[in-house]
Simulated assay, not measured.
Amino acid sequence: MSNNFSIEEFEKKYVARLQDRKLDWNVLKFQEEIDPAYQRAQMRYIGRGATANNDPDVIEAEHFTLSTMVLPPGCVGPLHHHDDVEEVFFILKGKVKALIQENSYSEVYEIELNERDCISSPPGVFRGIKNIGEEEALMLVMLGANKPNIPTYPEGSELEKVRKERTKEREATIKGE
């Protein structure tokens, strides 16, 4: 080991402890405002994800993001897709259905997942998740890039309309309009 190596600095930079985390019920609040069934919370560990929330306590991502997600009974992570990354859901607790759709106009397929089951959705495929159990579901969520693009939603959906509005507002802010 180098004389300049500090285990204290290493720990500060590369360790994220549960005691320092809190569930963020607001990061996806814009979805819940469209439909209360979209309520869910994230707890970030590595990277800021596609929402790019500004959590100073996350481990800086180099190649992927990692968070946990809590999904209350009956709630849904709505159909969306990432054009640039795969997304992995690993079920830690609960019973869910993964929702898979090839494109905005095709059939939505359901795949039941239980504790310690995993699904990986490739870029460009719409995916969502629904808690079909009696208790909250807890899962790990990984995205395959350190700064994924903002997801899109099925064409014509209320969420896609909101995403387009938010994108225009964001671009106008960047341009100083």
Score class of each variant (00 low, 15 high):
1 M>D: 07
2 S>L: 03
2 S>H: 05
4 N>F: 00
6 S>W: 02
9 E>I: 05
11 E>M: 09
15 V>C: 08
15 V>P: 01
15 V>L: 15
19 Q>G: 01
21 R>D: 06
22 K>T: 15
24 D>M: 09
28 L>K: 10
28 L>W: 09
34 I>R: 06
38 Y>A: 03
38 Y>I: 02
47 G>E: 07
47 G>S: 03
48 R>P: 00
49 G>E: 04
51 T>G: 11
51 T>V: 11
53 N>C: 11
56 P>V: 08
57 D>V: 04
58 V>H: 06
60 E>S: 07
60 E>N: 08
63 H>V: 11
67 S>H: 12
69 M>K: 06
70 V>P: 00
72 P>K: 02
80 H>Q: 13
82 H>G: 10
83 D>E: 14
83 D>V: 13
85 V>N: 05
86 E>W: 15
87 E>C: 09
89 F>Y: 15
90 F>S: 09
91 I>T: 06
92 L>F: 04
92 L>P: 01
93 K>T: 07
94 G>I: 03
94 G>Y: 05
94 G>A: 06
97 K>L: 11
98 A>I: 01
98 A>M: 09
100 I>C: 05
101 Q>H: 01
102 E>F: 04
106 S>G: 02
108 V>G: 01
116 R>N: 13
116 R>S: 09
117 D>F: 06
119 I>E: 05
120 S>I: 15
120 S>Y: 03
122 P>E: 09
122 P>I: 10
124 G>Y: 00
125 V>C: 05
126 F>K: 03
128 G>L: 05
129 I>V: 14
131 N>V: 03
131 N>W: 00
132 I>Q: 04
132 I>A: 01
132 I>C: 02
133 G>N: 06
134 E>V: 06
135 E>C: 01
138 L>T: 08
139 M>Y: 13
139 M>Q: 12
141 V>K: 07
141 V>E: 12
143 L>R: 13
151 P>L: 11
152 T>Y: 01
157 S>P: 04
159 L>W: 07
161 K>A: 13
162 V>D: 10
164 K>E: 14
165 E>C: 06
167 T>S: 13
167 T>C: 01
169 E>C: 01
173 T>C: 11
174 I>E: 13
174 I>K: 15
175 K>W: 05
